[in-house]
Design a protein around this nucleic acid. Structure first.
Lengths: 206, 206
DNA sequence: CATATTTTGTACCGTTTCGCATTAAATTCT
DNA sequence: AGAATTTAATGCGAAACGGTACAAAATATG
């Protein structure tokens, strides 16, 4: 299903790469402040090509969000490798997040979803849907690990896996916001460490 | 310094009220997606009047952010009334935040700063400055209460007030994001309760 | 009452915006 | 080779954008 030769003129660009370039622009400027000219310049595609390949600006934006969400889930599940101790898992989740959040040029970009989709979420229902679903998927993935932690005795039997997961996510949400607000890497790493400590608690010593 | 009769034609509007209306528009749409026409319609002021009273769009936006920050600090200090137990303080902080965050019409608006200033923070240095300063002020105010909590024995001597404060803030940041993402009031209140539990910990029983 | 000063309202300017119409180019199918 | 089909590139066009010039209105001062 990959080389089914299509009929007309073949594309002269890699749609995946173009989507990545578009993502960077949205990441820096947000959806509303990004113009098609910005996207056109960054992708080296004319507006009609952009339009033909991805639809209008909102379609393209939603595509980048979905891709980001998918990539994020991949990083997350890798960080949550169940052969490692829970404490290491959560630390790796935060480290992975910070590696992404602190990648800015002028200023750190934080999280694409939290940093740029949140604004549009109120007015654009589709954006709100993607954002909500992404946050939930993250919570759910962490919750699975927490549940395992209870079974294994890494967490006390009384622990509430769902709530612990949501609070673990909360620390990450805060890292995303603070990164975009200009906090230093040192500060963010300190918060991440304290977060691990608080979430995994003294129970982690076992 | 209030009734110094100014020379020319007097203003036919209340600048404070207009600023409040403008804030609502920015809150729903964000800075970039808000047009001067939107602001003009909401405030019942013509664009020249807006410009004359508040400067350009960015100036006006920064004004609304500063006002919001100030109001938020007032709510915060009131919630942190030191005559109450620490646990109640933090619960009140979250309750106060949720009362603000869930006030939307179509969808919940979350926090003006986290929800709309975060996007602009990367490109607009002045916005990033206000956002960063606001988050820090919040952290500092909570930290003072945490420090008092250690002195009083509400928290263990080993507790790190600064980090506890930052994590308490983190839960609030998450509430802000999740509100805008469409989470239900019940979910948010559950997260707030769990947050109080985790932050104030078993130490709160004392 | 005349003058100075500030606000108000209309109208406008130049730019930028998104999206598309149209034509040229590249490839497959017959 | 020629028809059909898809993409590429130029450029257009109507609307919205932020901001302001300008004249009328409203007040204080002399």
């Amino acid at each position: 299903m990959k080389d089914e030769k299509k009929r007309g003129r073949p594309r002269a660009f890699d749609a995946k790469a173009a989507l990545g370039k578009a993502r960077d622009v949205f990441w820096d400027r947000g959806f509303a402040a990004t113009s098609l000219d910005n996207l056109s310049a960054a992708t080296n595609l004319n507006r009609p090509s952009l339009y033909g390949a991805f639809g209008d600006k909102e379609d393209l934006y939603l595509d980048t969000l979905e891709g980001y969400r998918q990539d994020g889930m991949d990083v997350l599940t890798e960080a949550l490798d169940p052969s490692l101790p829970l404490r290491d898992n959560i630390a790796r989740v935060y480290a992975g997040a910070l590696a992404i959040y602190l990648h800015g040029e002028t200023a750190a970009r934080g999280c694409l979803l939290i940093g740029t989709a949140s604004v549009e979420a109120v007015q654009h229902e589709r954006v709100r849907e993607v954002l909500g679903r992404s946050l939930n998927d993250f919570d759910d993935e962490i919750e699975k690990r927490m549940r395992l932690g209870v079974e294994r005795g890494e967490l006390p039997q009384s622990a509430d896996p769902q709530m612990l997961a949501r609070l673990a996510s909360a620390v990450m949400h805060s890292l995303a916001v603070r990164a975009r607000a200009g906090d230093s890497r040192e500060t963010l790493e300190a918060i991440a460490r304290s977060g691990v400590e608080l979430i995994c608690g003294s129970a982690g010593h076992a």
